[in-house]
Simulated scan of single mutants.
Amino acid sequence: MVNVRQTTRVAGGRPAVAAVAAGTFSVVTTEMLPVGLLTPIGEDLGVSAGTAGLTMTVPGLVAAVAAPVVTRLAGRRDRRWVLVGLMGLLTVANLLSAAATDIGVLVALRVLVGVCIGGVWAIAAGLAVRLVPERRVGPATSLIFSGIAVASVLGVPAGTLAGAAGGWRTAFLAMGGVALAVTAALAALLPPLPSPEPADGGAGNVLGPLRTAPVRVGLLVVLLLVTGHFAGYTFVRPLLERVPGTDAGLISGLLVAYGAAGVAGNFLAGSAVPRRPRATLLLIAAALAVVMPALAVAGGGAMGATVLVVLWGLAYGGVSVATQNRLMAAVPPAPGAREGVSALFVSVFNLAISLGALVGGRVVDAGSVAGAAWVGGGLALLAAGVVGVGGRVR
């Protein structure tokens, strides 16, 4: 196994990492594509915006289930071809979505998208260690995880613009073309990636890491941070509308600034976390615990909101790479354990996205938009406490 990993690193390197990053960009952009297209999708297919919203809800929930299932079904297959197959499926799902004439068909195709999201992330999240030398694993992991932030900054707005120019179907066609190009890049640039699982396979390889206390603590931190973030961020636009001195143009600019800060935060955390993993994660959690309630009180006007939104982006941009690093450090020394932890990470992450939106929505309906931000901040504060106490768990 040592010889295989060393050969893989030499044969893979930065081009392979870049191809995997393009894959994560593709699945996240596809997942988020309906955000700016719900109205035209609903009008074209004759359904309400709420019903069209199922195209956003379904993939995340499916991905939470698909991550461990795809990892289990992949068995001893070469991970290069598993990734290529998943990206090929994503290509087909996007192209067929562009031709959908019924909301039921479109939602069914989004189920396939959820399978691709869960499978790609479960494999890609821990792949850097097999592609580059140990000293480059941190930056390589940051690049792979940058797909989340870059998709938010470039992918989703580009899809929205394509939809505005040529209709929502054009956006899905374009994304199908991107997914096809990434499929080819993965096939050409990835080295052979033999399965890390032992010959007997089994679901225990996916769920086995749960027997390790630091893994359970790490997953709890992921659940709290991501749920808290999305409890507040799902309603960030109405939250910003409460701030004196803001208008629609400024809010759009602030959301772009948030995305750009997220990209920067991803790479900053990727650089810091190998040296100070616990301190980096604690700083991220503490920043989120402060920023959301501060924005809820609408203090500081437009300038204050700008600073808070940028800080929010910087902090949340580092969540994925910092929590993944913590989990990888806690991986038990067993065959297939890294993939098992990655699958659990993706499941909990996607479940937390849906849970955060649900919790935030209930709070908004029962109280106010500011209440959702306070709840988000409270969950982030609780996560900071778990990081502090969990540092003693071995």
Rank of each mutant, 00 (worst) to 15 (best):
L180F: 13
A125W: 10
P274G: 08
R392D: 11
V28Q: 06
T39K: 13
V107R: 03
G42L: 02
T141E: 06
V364Q: 03
A98S: 13
T280C: 05
G75E: 06
V319T: 14
V113Y: 00
D44M: 07
V387R: 00
V389L: 15
S271T: 14
A18Q: 05
P293A: 09
P277D: 03
G367W: 15
Y316P: 02
L73D: 06
S320T: 15
R135G: 12
G262F: 09
G218Q: 01
R211D: 09
V17T: 06
R216A: 09
F172S: 01
V386Y: 01
R242V: 02
S354L: 14
R110F: 06
C116G: 08
A248F: 05
L327C: 08
M328L: 15
L96M: 11
R276L: 13
L355S: 11
A231D: 01
L106H: 10
S26F: 04
A272P: 05
L220Y: 03
F349G: 08
I123R: 04
G167D: 06
A93H: 02
V309H: 07
G53M: 10
G388K: 10
V2I: 14
R394F: 02
V291W: 09
A261G: 09
V113C: 05
V132K: 06
G138Y: 07
Q6D: 14
G378R: 01
S271K: 14
V359D: 03
A174M: 12
L73G: 05
P196H: 07
V82S: 02
L83Q: 07
A74D: 09
A11G: 08
A151W: 09
G147R: 08
W374M: 14
P196A: 09
A63H: 04
E134D: 14
L282Y: 09
E339P: 05
